[in-house]
Amino acid sequence: MRLSDIMSAMQLSGWAELALILFLAAFVAVAFQLFSPKRRAEYQRRGQLPLEGDMDEAETSEGKP
């Protein structure tokens, strides 16, 4: 029996449903962690990472003061 025989005999709709369940599980897990109040401060610090660079980078296209 070849792999294509096995695949041909399978119900395809199950693949899509399985994928949706996988995605939902991953989504809920990530969302659960992210929006846990305990992690708020930690993520706020991480959001600051781009602003921790050189001091002269705070300016915009207006050029150096």
């Binding site: 989504f27 990530v30 969302a31 992210l34 929006f35 992690r39 993520y43 706020q44 991480r46 959001g47 600051q48 781009p50 602003l51 660079g53 980078e57 705070a58 915009t60």
Partner: peptide, 17 residues
């Protein structure tokens, strides 16, 4: 965008999601 606005991204958690 945060660099140009000189403020952190609105929600870092949303960015991960």
């Amino acid at each position: 965008l945060p660099k140009a606005a000189n403020r952190p991204v609105f929600s870092y958690r949303l960015s991960i999601l």
